[in-house]
């Protein structure tokens, strides 16, 4: 059966209407998500604007809202993130390399693989409870920066492992074969080729993990972070030999989201402004980390092509 030209044109026009309708609906869905975020951020910014002064970053919390700042909170966040990165990245990368390159393909490995992915879905409060029992009491690390860093490391370990495995898998088999054919051992192949070529993906995974950890509140509260801290942890650099100190690891701390939580639960209006300002800072920190991840990926990948 053959359509006349006229019939065909009406039919095409009718079908194309659905094209336009979906295009419109899709765009609305997209705008809904993006606009919500923009409005939220804008509102936070408007509210907190007047508190975003240099003093806000250099002052400790205070009973008077206008004097209160986030010094101990951002220093705490930086310190905790440092511990998290230093533990989650080596552990996660090593685990991923083992799973991807070394582990024999059998049911044991399959079970471990499935569980690693599942761990990423465990609610963070559960990690908090685990850490409270294990790190704080069993290991006697107390309510310290070290405990918090290790807890968050545990939380983002699956993210790092999954991202690293994907990055490793992106290295083509032909490159592996080329290295093996020249007489490389497995470790020479991994350390000389697979790891360097996948570094962009590994770094991205690490930063995405950290940007998740930076906003976590529940597990940190569970292990007992303080909400009012008017001092800084011990300095990592000292004037006496050996000039480096690890005392800060055992210090009590607070972090940005907890400081925010503390301020929002105050009845005074002025503290709400502080919370909004801290929210802006936290959001900017997260966005900056994600931006860094994108930048790193772009620049490292430029040098790699197969």
């Amino acid at each position: 059966m053959r359509f006349t030209l006229q019939e065909m044109r009406t039919m095409i026009a009718r079908h194309k209407r659905w094209d336009h309708i979906f295009g419109l609906v899709g765009m609305l869905c997209l705008l809904l998500g993006i606009l919500t975020l923009v409005v939220l951020f804008g509102q936070l910014l408007l509210q907190g604007m007047e508190r975003l002064t240099p003093e806000f970053f250099t002052s400790f919390p205070s009973r008077r809202a206008e004097n209160a700042g986030i010094l101990s909170a951002w220093v705490g966040t930086v310190a905790v993130m440092l511990v998290t990165a230093m533990t989650a990245v080596p552990l996660g990368v090593a685990a991923a390399v083992y799973l991807e390159e070394y582990a024999p393909r059998n049911w044991m490995t399959a079970i471990i693989e499935i569980n690693v992915t599942n761990l990423a879905g465990v609610p963070s409060i559960v990690y908090g409870l685990l850490a409270l029992g294990l790190f704080v009491y069993q290991f006697g690390l107390g309510q310290s920066i070290l405990s918090a860093g290790l807890t968050l490391a545990l939380l983002i370990l699956p993210v790092v492992i999954v991202a690293t495995r994907e990055a490793l898998r992106a290295v083509p088999g032909s490159i592996r074969e080329a290295a093996y054919a020249l007489g490389a051992t497995r470790w020479q192949m991994v350390s000389g080729h697979v790891l360097p070529y996948s570094s962009a993906g590994i770094l991205t995974g690490m930063i995405i993990g950290l940007s998740r950890a930076i906003g976590e509140t529940a597990p940190i509260i569970t292990i007992g972070a303080l909400t009012f801290i008017a001092f800084l942890p011990n300095s990592p650099v000292t004037t006496d030999f050996p000039f480096i100190s690890f005392k800060w690891l055992m210090d009590p701390f607070t972090v940005m989201p907890i400081q925010m939580f503390n301020w929002t639960s105050r009845p005074e209006e002025a503290f709400q402004l502080n919370a909004a300002a801290a929210g802006v800072v936290l959001l900017v920190m997260t966005l900056a980390m994600n931006g860094l991840a994108i930048w790193l990926r772009y620049h490292l990948r430029k040098k790699i092509k197969w």
Binding site: P172, S174, I175, E177, A178, A179, Y180, A181, L182, G183, H193, Y197, K303, I304, K305, W306
Partner: peptide, 15 residues
């Protein structure tokens, strides 16, 4: 593999 070397079907230089 240290005694016998190989050239592959598709050029596969390292990046």
């Amino acid at each position: 593999r240290m005694r016998i070397s190989m050239v592959f079907q598709k050029p596969n230089p390292f990046p």
